[in-house]
Design a protein around this nucleic acid. Sequence first.
DNA 1: CTAAAACTGTGTATGCCATACGTTGAGGTG
DNA 2: CACCTCAACGTATGGCATACACAGTTTTAG
Lengths: 262, 262
Amino acid sequence: MTRDSKGPDPQRSLTLLWAGRARGRRGPRPQLSVERIAQAAIRIADTDGLDALSMQRIATELGYSTMSIYNHIPSKDLLLEVVADVGAGKPPELDSTGDFRHAVRQWVAALWAGFQTRPWLLRVPLGHSSMGPHQLAWLDRLLQPLLRAGLVGGEARAAALHLTAVVRGQAQISIALTSAPPADEGLSRGEAELAQLLATFINPRDYPALAAVQAAETAADLAEHERADREAFPGALSFGVDRFLDGVEAWVAAKSHRRDNG
Amino acid sequence: MTRDSKGPDPQRSLTLLWAGRARGRRGPRPQLSVERIAQAAIRIADTDGLDALSMQRIATELGYSTMSIYNHIPSKDLLLEVVADVGAGKPPELDSTGDFRHAVRQWVAALWAGFQTRPWLLRVPLGHSSMGPHQLAWLDRLLQPLLRAGLVGGEARAAALHLTAVVRGQAQISIALTSAPPADEGLSRGEAELAQLLATFINPRDYPALAAVQAAETAADLAEHERADREAFPGALSFGVDRFLDGVEAWVAAKSHRRDNG
DNA sequence: CTAAAACTGTGTATGCCATACGTTGAGGTG
DNA sequence: CACCTCAACGTATGGCATACACAGTTTTAG
């Protein structure tokens, strides 16, 4: 480790992510470790947000000087890669019996819940962390029901990427919209008033489809909103995932039919 | 405008995003404007990346002092929201004749291309920019073919969100994996060697499905890779979008059938 | 018509940040 | 035992966002 050159070096990222620290080195025994540093960083981000995450903060949290951190991690960018991987945690256990759709929905719900718990994960630039051990574990878990459904290698990989991307993207958008107003000044105008303000901008001339959708929605809106709070993930996500799984199922069926007749 | 309180204030975000500067104010006529500032910021991010984007840099680029910027934009976070919206640009014109799938694919390809052109857009925290005029224009454009396909309000909105999320997420992952190695030191080991290094970590014990997929892929990999470079967007994205559209089509068909028989 | 008020642009200052560099001492290795 | 390597530390540097006080300009109130 020690002093090193910078720059986006995938090799370094990978070895850092996959740890496996070699023992039997010289010098004093390290008290700090990549693991401890990452844990402290996650703790800070969980409690005070990603903006509060600084090298100095980590060091004081652990009771060491700021620069000691750099003996274990060459830069903050690399640290963030590690944090993004470790912070993802372990993937859930899925029902491997029966419907592959059920398993996939379980996986989606778990990932969604993870992003709700740690919204800051969505603000960490991915870097090479998507090749970290935890990220790959999540990917592996999702691939299993997809392969079981009848997708072949490349298709399963594409479908898994699709689902990962959907949850990531939806969570990002969802969290962006749910940033709480300051609520001081006595009257904290709710989302309703905000939506109304926005509605004044959405004139049917510039946004015909949007206006149409918005007009058609005011009716059944409330009932759906209340129901959504009780679900594992919101209706918009659910609809998309279900339609995708419909398509996957049809694709597999068509493939096997092709094989039967070929 | 002038001096203002901070904090995530949706109201302020929206009024800033939707501009409409009122004239007839006191004081000297402003030479700077939110528009000019945003354009300069985009220029900087395009040429030197998001990390090079600082208030000082913007100011010197425009030939003003750093603090002048704050007379027009209360904080850098708000600036980024504006930049994220303006930087998205105008949505493409879609073929409104014929197949809705074609139009959707056009839209997806355009958004994908946008993210390739401006990768830094994916690193800007969304904030409330998703309610900016440009973002809504993109959304509106996508809603049109979806409504035409036969989805009703809520479904169309969910499907549009799904597609947006997919492209965003896939682009993020894709860009994260394509960060170039420094390529100094004579031998710039390619992605191949990197993949091989990664492969040593992926043992079938911990990652059974991944290993299976990887083993099944080495064969037809090259041909597919070469073909992917000529497409508007990569095969993984295409597969997912197509399966989703299959599901949407089936859903609409089932609905109309239900109606015919109900 | 005048004076106050409001606003834009400027310069300076503060405090936080990542990180380069030099030093010290610990503890394996020859 | 001598040497080498490395962990932890302190200090220093340059960049950053932004608070604050000021100067000049234009609109508006009286």
